[in-house]
Simulated scan of single mutants.
Amino acid sequence: MSTVIEQLRYVVLGTRDLEAAAHFAGAELGLQPLPAGNGEQAFRSDHRQYSLVYSNAAPRRHAVGLELRDDAALQATVQALQARGIAVQHDAALAARRNVRALAAFTTPGGLCLELVVRPQDQGWRFFAARDCGMAGLAALALRSTDVAADEALLVELFGLQVRDWIGDAAYLGLDAAHHRLALFPAATAGVLAVEFEVQGLDQVMQQYHRLRELPQAVVHGPGRRPASGQAFLTFAGPDAVYYSFVTDGERIDAAAPRRPRQFAMRADSHCAWGSDCGIAELLADAVPARPALRGVTSA
């Protein structure tokens, strides 16, 4: 089954302090700010008009933007969601604010807010980083889900995403040649766990590490390399209990003929082959229930 998702488009994060969040996006992530308005501040990381939005309208609300090819794909997906008993909201005002041709929003069984969008705008002028960090663009999102199994099934069966690997009950889902674009982690509350940006190389990962290493509790995982994806990474704390990662390298997968998904244990060496300390509760072995000894492989 081919995916109906064209690309991971953006993430919207509620914040209690818009000014502090905006400063973080420029100073630590190197993102390019767009003019603020209506209690929101958007940022560019690549060719997209924006890939990160901070909003003070609802400090606890997170949303993920997924691009569909056209109106027909959106209509078919909405009908399939409704057939599963999932309510879908069409919001013209929100579509205008997101600067997309059409938008339909829904909440997954695990509590994730997804916004399906058609024809989001790219930017004609090149991305200009706020600082020299080697930014290459939005890479992936790690998401907290209260029902990973149901959300995994929905994204695989309806949207055509492919399970690339599991670590414990956490599922890594791909839609193109990258190892994954979304990762689902069991949690008591739903939302964004981490926003991951690709940078040009390992030098940029290590430069960020040396920027942050003297700040108490700033670096929460890494630098290291992920056994599942092969990515070099550094994860650090951001505003409003959301983490951010710089990643580079990583396995490339033929989405038309993917390898079988692999099962890793939920333990430290499954998340980092270099043995780095981890301060992220969702990645620790005692944070999730144990998986049964055997699990069927979900086919895409």
Rank of each mutant, 00 (worst) to 15 (best):
A218P: 00
V199S: 11
R16S: 02
A194S: 15
D203M: 08
A25C: 04
M206A: 14
F127Y: 11
S2D: 13
W274L: 14
D165L: 01
A256E: 11
E157S: 14
R60I: 01
D151G: 08
A96F: 06
G30M: 08
A73W: 04
L74D: 06
R267Q: 13
G224N: 13
L184Y: 05
S270V: 10
A22Q: 13
N99G: 09
D254T: 07
L103V: 05
A42D: 05
V4I: 14
R267P: 03
D269T: 15
R291A: 01
R9W: 08
A22H: 09
Q32P: 06
G124R: 12
A188E: 07
P292F: 10
E152G: 01
R213Y: 14
V192I: 13
A140H: 13
A20I: 03
A72F: 02
V220W: 06
L184T: 12
A102M: 10
P59V: 02
L68E: 10
D176H: 14
T15E: 03
F128W: 10
D203N: 08
N56D: 13
M1C: 06
V4W: 03
A281Q: 06
V4Q: 09
R101A: 15
A20S: 15
H179K: 01
L141S: 15
N38T: 06
R84G: 09
M135D: 10
Q200Y: 03
A171V: 14
H62I: 01
R69Q: 14
Y10F: 15
V219L: 15
T77G: 13
Q89H: 09
A194W: 05
V117Y: 04
A256L: 11
A255K: 04
H271G: 03
A265P: 04
L141R: 09
Q121A: 14
A139K: 07
L31K: 01
V242I: 12
P59H: 02
L8V: 04
R97L: 09
V220M: 12
L114N: 00
E282P: 02
D176M: 12
F233T: 08
V205T: 05
R226T: 06
V88K: 11
G110R: 00
S2W: 04
A25Y: 00
E152P: 00
A190Q: 03
P186K: 01
V195Q: 09
V78D: 04
F233A: 09
L31G: 00
